[in-house]
Amino acid sequence: MTTISPSRALRHSMLMAGRTAAKSVKNPAVLVELVIQPLVMLVLFSLVLGGAISGGDSDAYTRQLVPGLMVYSALLVSVGTGVALSTDITKGVFDRFRSMPIARSAPLVGTVVGDLFRYTACIVLTLGFGYLFGFRVTTGVVPMLLDLVLMIGFSFSLCWISVWVGMLAGKPETVQGYLFILIMPISFGSTIFVQSSTLPGWLAAWTDINPVSLLSEVNRGLLTGGPVGGPLLGALAWMAGFVVVFYPLAMAAYKRRMR
């Protein structure tokens, strides 16, 4: 068996990342998904429901909504990582990679790193559409860039859950189903769309510690001003937890699947 040095393994992974990014750019379905999802949510919540939710001041609601929608978009896009991996495995692409003299981990690491392009595009597009709907960053460029880095970090930590589910579930459709079951409660049981004070007690208790809520609050703080410290520590703890728990699980499941 050929031993591959870490530098070569890194190069292989970067080549695979290039493949993933190229697939994203060339696949119109992915691009449409990136554009349509945030746009639909903004139209629905800012225009259709915003006036009623905010008691007439839909601009104020848009200011609260856009930072949360950035998190929601990242959640939805993370599903694509698991689906893409499952599709490649089902179609036999990974069997082909196994027959090549490349690092065993390269296809997996490459997919995850390559998907950072999709995450970044999605977060930036959501913010851009927010601008069209009247949202404005009031804190400056540096906090905005910090927020972007934090959001990409969050997406990266999330994608290991997606990878793990992608390795366990048999078919790409199943992966999508399982991940949506996971995403629904953590996104709607959060402060993305409403403040926790308006929720029933049992739901508010979960909302206050939910990683999506914490990150939404950090986004609001970094983009429009407000407290950042407490929510940031909580969000970072969740992100670290996701990586510590799901990275080993994903790698173990990947190795099992690649046997």
Partner: peptide, 26 residues
């Protein structure tokens, strides 16, 4: 049913207040 639960329990209090009914809530 998911939409029903979502809109009653998550958005219900805020949207209900905007309807201006006697209870004005969920």
């Amino acid at each position: 049913v998911i939409f029903l639960l979502l809109f009653v329990y998550v958005f219900g209090a805020m949207l209900g207040a905007g309807l201006g009914g006697p209870v004005g809530g969920r």
